[in-house]
Design a protein around this nucleic acid. Structure first.
Lengths: 329, 329
DNA sequence: AAAGTCCATGTAATCGATTACAATTAAAAG
DNA sequence: CTTTTAATTGTAATCGATTACATGGACTTT
């Protein structure tokens, strides 16, 4: 309720001195400092960020753009972003776009309106033209998703190599008929993971069979179910499946069970992302783990550095193959 | 980049007039309005929320306190809150407390610092004393969780009745030995659900067997696994289990499968919350559905009304029993 | 003792908007 | 043709902080 004026009056000093105490400015005598601190306590004073932010022209808010919070893939990344943000005295504003351009616009405007100091985009469906425009004037970082040959700094993993490792793991187990459940190849990561899948097959001299590659619309459970249904209808049934997301893999698992087959005895299964539910399924799911927490921390650090005017380099983080029951015959 | 002064100068009017145009104030002649609008376009002007917020002493930000975003239970509620918030020109700040008092304090201070206009708490472990203190000065709403006999307005469901319906569903299927996997009874909802469980049993003349009631520390998958393990070691094995959260139920399911038993043939299973994964399990999970989206919308509406100085009444929403494979013999 | 330093504090401008009130002008009324 | 009244627009205070610069006093230095 009280403002800095009232504190100054009560302490018998000027507002400048109160401000100096608040900001731990060295040039205040211990005696005066004490008087001010007492007045602050007495009045139950809390500095208003509204005044401070206007004067400093900053909001200390970071925007995080993502398609949907209910997608568990993002949870850990958000955690990482938040941890780093808080320890740097920033806060994050989570922006669910639902891949809806109107929503996106609302949030882009928040940056222009000074309600946020920078933006981390994790939305694969983001309007890249607008994001690039924004980048000309404001700090922007892409996390996980990025534009090939673009100018906006990003942090991500090597999707091609990760898919390669997933498929190589299956090959080493003796599988020759390995299917791929991929998402729409309009997404860069989907193209990259397909390339990795093909490289692994080629390296071991297996042909690439287009009927073994299925593209889904989205990354939902039901897409996985549908994809697996198609794959099970093939004359030559795959003995292993690599799905580019855990949610798809869990859908595939459901369909395999429904058709009376068993994982991993009849079909081995590998997912991607190591979402928390991937070890709650039966059997637990072999998957590729991205260092999600670290990716979040890194993205936040990059953005904050960028806000401070530093030059930012792209960063590629390491992935890991998590071997669990769905590939352990 | 440009500010309201520059727009005023360019348009040849005063800043007051520009502000009137921005706020759609009626007392501006069409001719002047046009001049101003042209200047705004020419300069690419965007009003600064920092200035506006200071003047209006509001931040148009709502705080949402929750233990963890990765808990899918909260996803839909958050969605509801966000939808309502946005359509009222508010934004939400998601605050993960991890039930950590330090984190909580950071966020409580944001209210005092005017960085947020109000708070919705969904954290069962929230420090009620501090929340009550806050409520004396600032708008606060509790969502889903609340304090029995407390003064802070809340929106929730009838947990006792919901548990009663869950257990009654099992009784109707012919089960007599029904176990309860409950969470820590320091939580009000846990006590209420236990009461509902007992009322259903008593109504049908079944005794209440304490060995059939297991309390978990938290609501995690691993807690469900552990609980089920204990229940399976009993001399008289339950033929049905009601778990007070889907995550617990999914853990129980995993353990039942691991022990070679089948759901629902050997043991029927009911969860609570209808999280999205509850119909991705095998078998799909019978569960109690809370109207989560609606609960979120309601909480946000209550908070915004409260910010506008209105008097707020508590609201109890309806639940629903979702019957799926895990109870369909 | 005069001049120069340094330290602590105060004065007042500033950030970018909103808005009560004053001032101007034009239209309506007599 | 004056006087009212209404419709626009401008002036300046205000929200609550930060900070460059000015000021005054104590302490050195010569």
């Amino acid at each position: 309720m009280a403002n800095i004026q009232q504190v100054a009056q009560k302490a018998g000093v000027s507002v400048a001195t109160v401000s100096r105490v608040l900001n731990n400015n060295a040039t205040v005598s211990p005696h005066t400092r004490l008087k001010v601190e007492t007045a602050i306590k007495d009045l139950n004073y809390e500095p208003s960020m509204l005044g401070r932010n206007l004067r400093n022209s900053e909001s200390r808010l970071l925007l995080v753009l993502l398609p949907s919070i209910s997608n568990p893939f993002y949870s850990e990344i958000i955690n990482g972003i938040q941890t780093t943000a808080i320890s740097n005295n920033y806060n994050i504003l989570l922006c669910e776009t639902d891949s809806n351009p109107d929503r996106e616009n609302i949030y882009f405007n928040m940056i222009k309106n000074k309600l946020a100091d920078g933006i981390i985009s994790m939305d694969p469906a983001v309007n890249m033209q607008k994001l690039n425009e924004l980048y000309e004037q404001y700090p922007v970082i892409q996390c996980s998703e990025y534009e090939e040959g673009g100018v906006i700094p990003y942090v991500t993993i090597d999707n091609e190599q990760a898919a390669y490792h997933a498929v190589k793991h299956l090959v080493k187990l003796g599988h020759e008929n390995i299917a791929l459940i991929n998402s729409d190849e309009k997404f860069l990561y989907a193209r990259q993971r397909r390339t990795g899948y093909e490289r692994a097959l080629q390296e071991f001299g297996f042909p690439i069979d287009e009927t073994f590659i299925y593209h889904t619309q989205e990354l939902k459970f039901s897409d996985g179910v549908q994809a697996m249904r198609k794959l099970l209808q093939l004359d030559r049934r795959p003995s292993a499946v690599f799905a580019v997301s855990d949610t798809l893999a869990i859908g595939a698992l459901k369909e395999i069970n429904a058709s009376g087959l068993h994982v991993p005895e009849d079909i081995a299964l590998v997912g991607f992302d190591k979402i928390s539910f991937s070890n709650m399924t039966n059997p637990t799911l072999t998957t590729i783990s991205q260092p999600m927490h670290e990716m979040g921390c890194t993205a936040a650090r990059m953005l904050i550095n960028s806000i401070h005017g530093e030059k930012i380099e792209n960063i590629i983080l390491d992935h890991e193959v998590i071997i669990r029951e769905s590939t352990m015959g």
